[in-house]
Computed example of a mutant assay.
Amino acid sequence: AKENAFKKIKEAIKVVKKKPSIQTVWNFNTVVMGIQNYYSVATQITINLNELNLHLRKTLYNQLKNIRTEASFHEMTKTFQKRYKGYMAKLYKIQKMVFVPIHAQRWKKTFCFSQVICNFTAEGREKIHNSLKAIDKNTLSYIMRNYIPNRTIEYNDNRISKFIAQYGKCAILGEELGINEWHCHHINPYYISKDDSYLNLIIVNKAIHQLIHLKDKVKIKTLLQSLKLTSKQKEKVNKLRLKCLNEII
């Protein structure tokens, strides 16, 4: 596993060297954080990641020395600052995207761990599969790897966190969202608030997002007929419409 993690991170560094941009650094960060999250319950995670960091920080330093600049902790997004608070590391950036520290992951205790979960029994495998169904992994992977260049780093960061927090489901319909169905909506419109914070974002179905912003009564009526919202769902939509300075439906 350590060898695989080493290869993945090294490959991500090569991609950054070949095409230095916010997008490729974002890809590097998602690779590192994916490894950190997946192995966080391993009892030797800190030691293992420090071993990887010992070799990979040299690669990061040498391969990117002509294209990177030094960065401070406060240049990270608020989400990253919260995640990596307390870790001592020399940070680098390309443009405005800071590289996350490879070693920065503490061991996490597995609360509510079920000893029934394992790969060797039908019951154990079923529990594993059921837990994996909580979020569509293809959609999550797509969101993590597709950085939106014309939006802020904070927005790109927080939309992932919000998608995970909502288990990949629409906040209004409660349905699981696919790659082409999900939209990230600003509760207080961005053109007014300039607010990309986590609390100002909500994940909704594409059609719901249209319904929140639509002003044409004919189009609204057509959408309502196709969506068949309950009174509670319509109430939620209306709250979001009022925030956008639109009439209730």
Rank of each mutant, 00 (worst) to 15 (best):
M144R: 15
N238R: 02
L245E: 14
L227D: 03
F80M: 06
K78P: 07
T79I: 07
H213E: 14
T121V: 09
F6A: 02
C118L: 00
K85C: 14
H209T: 09
N4S: 01
S141D: 12
K217P: 08
L54I: 07
I22R: 09
L229E: 06
N53W: 14
T110H: 05
T222P: 03
F28R: 02
K206G: 03
K109Q: 13
C170D: 13
I164K: 13
Y191V: 00
N158P: 08
Q95R: 04
K215G: 15
N138Q: 12
F73P: 06
K221A: 13
E75W: 09
N158D: 09
N200A: 08
N246G: 07
K219R: 14
E154R: 02
V15S: 02
I35M: 15
W182K: 10
Q233V: 12
K10F: 08
Q225G: 03
F111I: 09
R125E: 11
L91V: 05
V41E: 02
T230D: 09
F99K: 06
N180C: 01
N50A: 07
A12S: 10
Y87G: 04
I9S: 01
H103W: 15
V237Q: 08
V15D: 00
I164Q: 12
S131T: 09
Y142E: 05
F163W: 09
Y84T: 03
L199S: 15
F73Y: 09
V116H: 00
T121F: 11
V98C: 10
L201P: 06
K82M: 01
K85H: 14
R106W: 13
E154V: 04
Q166L: 10
E123D: 15
S21H: 09
I135S: 09
I45W: 03
Y167R: 06
K90R: 11
C118S: 12
Y147S: 04
M33E: 14
L140A: 06
I164M: 12
R83H: 08
K217H: 10
K93Q: 08
K19C: 13
V116P: 00
K17D: 05
H209L: 06
F99W: 06
K127F: 06
S231Y: 01
H129G: 15
I208R: 02
F6Y: 11
K2T: 07
T222D: 08
M144C: 13
N29D: 11
D157A: 00
G124S: 07
L60E: 07
R125A: 10
A122P: 12
N138W: 09
N27W: 01
Y167E: 06
S131Y: 10
T30H: 00
I35S: 14
T69K: 11
Q210G: 07
R68I: 14
G124D: 12
Y38D: 15
R57W: 00
L224M: 14
N29S: 07
